[in-house]
Amino acid sequence: MRLGCLYEMLHVTPPMGPPDMLKGSPLADEAGWLNLNNHTLQHQVYPNVFGIGDCTNLPTAKTECRRSAQSAVLDRTISPVRKNAQPDKKYDGYTSCPLVTSYNTVILAEFDYNGQPLETFPLHQNKERRTMYQKADLMPTLYWHGLLR
């Protein structure tokens, strides 16, 4: 008897967890993630602490596109908060997951905290497209040579 399955595609994700240096610190929530307000990215207890990225407890996928959207919000949040004013921008949970469907096509899934589509291109992204593959292919270059500068 053969126990096994054949897969056309298998996507394996390594286990994820909060950084060891954050676990158990006063900045962490019960699970060890940086304890932030979902919309302002400001710490729930310490108002002078903000965060973005993979160490946060925000209920989104841990993707590069998410960090880019978070940094744009953070840019417009820190200054007003430091001046005791309300920020004029809130993070809506934007995240993007490129789903590779062939050697040269992608469906770009972009959505908010509620799982609602947030399409950032002037065309329907619910179809596999070569142009979305090219965007996904360019992201590492844009990240390392553009966004980090």
Rank of each mutant, 00 (worst) to 15 (best):
L10V: 10
K83W: 00
P98W: 12
Y133G: 00
A31Q: 12
L36D: 04
N35R: 02
D20L: 13
P14L: 12
L22Q: 04
D92Q: 05
T60R: 00
C55L: 14
N37T: 07
G4V: 14
P122Y: 06
P80A: 01
H124Y: 04
E128Y: 02
R2P: 05
Q70P: 09
D29F: 03
K90R: 09
Q44R: 11
F111N: 03
P47N: 10
C5S: 10
A136I: 04
D54V: 07
G115E: 09
R149Q: 11
C65K: 03
E30K: 14
D20H: 06
Y143G: 06
L74N: 00
T95C: 15
M139T: 13
Q125H: 01
R149P: 05
N104R: 08
M21F: 08
L148E: 09
E119F: 04
V12L: 04
L36W: 03
S25C: 11
L10G: 05
Q44C: 12
D75W: 15
S79A: 14
M16Y: 15
N35C: 11
G32W: 06
N38R: 04
G93Q: 01
F50S: 09
P80L: 04
P15V: 13
K135G: 01
K23D: 07
H124M: 10
L138E: 11
Y7R: 06
A85P: 00
M16T: 14
G115C: 08
T60I: 05
L142E: 09
T60P: 02
D54W: 06
P80W: 01
A109L: 14
Q116V: 13
S102I: 00
E119L: 06
K83I: 03
N126H: 07
C5F: 13
S96V: 06
N84R: 14
K89R: 14
F121A: 09
